[in-house]
Design a protein around this nucleic acid. Structure first.
Lengths: 165, 165
DNA sequence: TATTGTTATACTCTATAACTATA
DNA sequence: TATAGTTATAGAGTATAACAATA
């Protein structure tokens, strides 16, 4: 099979790159509960941006019940702790432990190598451009000229918005 | 929660954009078996690049057993047909039907709107750059300067290569 | 009344194993 | 012996529903 027509499809390219990334992380992040998602939880726990489990779950694109299991696993390995939120006794604040910080550093280094591998076909400047564009899309920082978006307003309304903390 | 540190992570951005894409396709591709993956099968069936189910499965990043179920659904709706490969009687060649061509046109138009929505934060030129970079990564067209890739050769060796037809 | 977090349960998706038919 | 495709089965991941505690 030569390069098929489906290669022109944005959804296919996005999926192929994402699968490649996930596959490469498996080889390198096998010990960390939740894989790359666990790494993302550790980042949020370190920076104190995980002010509630639901908010974090929405940022990571999973259900809050999944977040419970994921944090259970990380806590069992002593990487994070659940602390009661002083301002809302229903909520739990995630804090990273010393062991968690060490594992986070390891995982970040390992993921750096994975990114080098995934982005290998690109030059240095291209990699930076791609990172910026993806970040812009993921955080949905709006471009000035938004007129072309009118036709898809109905799609946008069906989606959950990422909530503030 | 303000924009958290995890937003700087490539894996997170990739996942967030991909989830956003999949979610948007649900709203617009609900009738098509397999959703965007079904659309990708239709493209391959139309272009005759689906010379065997396994080869197609590997391009779409799924197991060959999943491909069987997916094609079953598409065939049941009369969108594709399985034809015996004259050169290898074990293999099946996918061909698109007239109804399949019509559905493919609809789906392609719908996905165009989805892409407009997903890419809304970017300007016209940025969108083209992103498409090119993702396509390059997905097809792994190697960049001239590949020296930086040495450290991750071990990761590459653990991955399945996309096979020729 | 709504929300956070948890648990138990069910569902969806995907992979594994075993088989037939070809090569 | 290896591969294409199918089927049945098992597993991973995820979501749904119900609950207690709190807002």
């Amino acid at each position: 099979m030569t390069t098929p027509a489906v290669a022109a499809d944005l959804g296919w390219a996005l999926g192929a790159v994402y699968r490649g990334y996930l596959k490469a992380t498996e080889a390198v992040l096998s010990g960390l509960p939740g894989g790359p998602r666990g790494h993302q939880v550790l980042i949020a726990a370190r920076d104190g941006t995980a002010c509630s489990q639901v908010a974090l779950a929405q940022w990571l694109g999973v259900d809050r019940t999944v977040m419970t299991y994921l944090i259970d696993d990380l806590e069992r390995e002593g990487l994070v702790e659940r602390r009661p939120d002083p301002t809302d006794r229903r909520a739990r604040r995630l804090v990273i432990t010393e062991a968690g910080n060490a594992r986070l550093a390891e995982a970040t280094a390992a993921l750096g190598r994975v990114e080098d591998h995934v982005l290998a076909p690109l030059g240095e400047s291209e990699r930076e451009v791609l990172r910026d564009l993806l970040r812009k899309l993921a955080t949905r920082q709006e471009h000035e000229d938004e007129s072309a978006c009118a036709v898809v307003k109905d799609i946008a309304e069906m989606e959950d918005r990422i909530p503030p903390c």
